[in-house]
């Protein structure tokens, strides 16, 4: 049986009376697609336990968080989370919709395919000797890093950039010996004048969160091309 009929919205004539030997095409399962890295931004109320709620939900729904960065925003009652995770588009959309169900979550946006600035900060403590310190400093300079502490046999370097840039720096300096490394996880912001926080409807305190209502609906109703007709 061909699927052409289903594509233009019509049911193949007599489909239900199809001869016994023709097997209907299998119904697509939600979530078929390739795994890739996604970045979600969540605007949440700064209430006790909200981080626990988000983490617990992701665990219970079987999503694996790669990194999670959280801090309050310019408004003390609002926090912002940047969550990176791997999954196919439909699974991550399901994660976003589940996050929306949390009472303390105002807005969730998948910014993976949008123009954004994505940065994380890493501190790297490297072994350094008098003979190779100069080399290391040159690499740091090339990577737009900064030496923040110097000891007789070590330097602490701060680098910022995308996850890939930090990865690259780490692999560049690994031969010298990384004593320890810590990264903040990515934070992300949309390029241009568009503001994720503003569209959460809580930019002006007391303003109703109308925007997030509409967005919840749009996520489901045609916001994602995969949602409609992905047979």
């Amino acid at each position: 049986m061909s699927t052409e009929g289903a594509d233009d919205g019509r049911v193949p004539a007599g489909a239900h009376q199809a001869p016994a030997h023709t097997v209907p095409p299998p119904r697509a399962l939600p979530g078929s697609g390739d795994n890739r890295r996604h970045v979600l931004v969540a605007i949440v109320l700064n209430k006790p336990g909200v981080l626990n709620r988000v983490a617990s939900l992701m665990r219970a729904r079987n999503f694996n968080i790669d990194s999670l960065a959280v801090s309050h925003t310019d408004q003390p009652d609002i926090s912002r989370m940047t969550i990176t995770l791997h999954g196919d588009d439909v699974a991550v959309e399901q994660a976003a919709k589940q996050l929306y169900r949390l009472i303390d979550v105002l807005k969730v946006q998948d910014v993976t395919s949008e123009p954004t600035i994505e940065h994380e900060l890493a501190l790297v403590k490297l072994r350094a000797t008098d003979s190779n310190r100069g080399e290391i400093l040159r690499l740091v300079e090339l990577s737009k890093g900064r030496v923040v502490d110097v000891a007789p046999d070590a330097v602490v370097v701060e680098v910022t950039g995308s996850e890939a840039e930090v990865d690259t720096f780490a692999s560049l300096v690994r031969p010298y010996g990384i004593k320890e490394l810590v990264r903040t996880g990515a934070v992300v912001m949309a390029r241009g004048s568009q503001s994720i926080e503003e569209s959460s409807g809580r930019w002006r305190r007391g303003a109703p969160a109308r925007a997030s209502e509409r967005d919840t609906q749009d996520i489901v109703e045609g916001g994602n091309p995969l949602e409609a007709g992905n047979r």
Binding site: A6, G9, V11, P12, A15, H16, A18, P24, P25, P26, R27, A28, L29, P30, V90, E93, Q94, K97, Q98, Y100, R101, T216, Q217, I219, V220, E221, E227, A228, G229, N230, R231
Partner: peptide
């Protein structure tokens, strides 16, 4: 296998969770 699906639910997370649907309505 021959059906298109219109799914009405008040919870957006239920739509597209277990089966892919043609017309979601929240």
């Amino acid at each position: 296998p021959y059906a298109r699906i219109v799914h009405v639910d008040i919870d957006p997370a239920e739509i597209g969770k277990n089966v892919a649907v043609e017309v979601p309505i929240v």
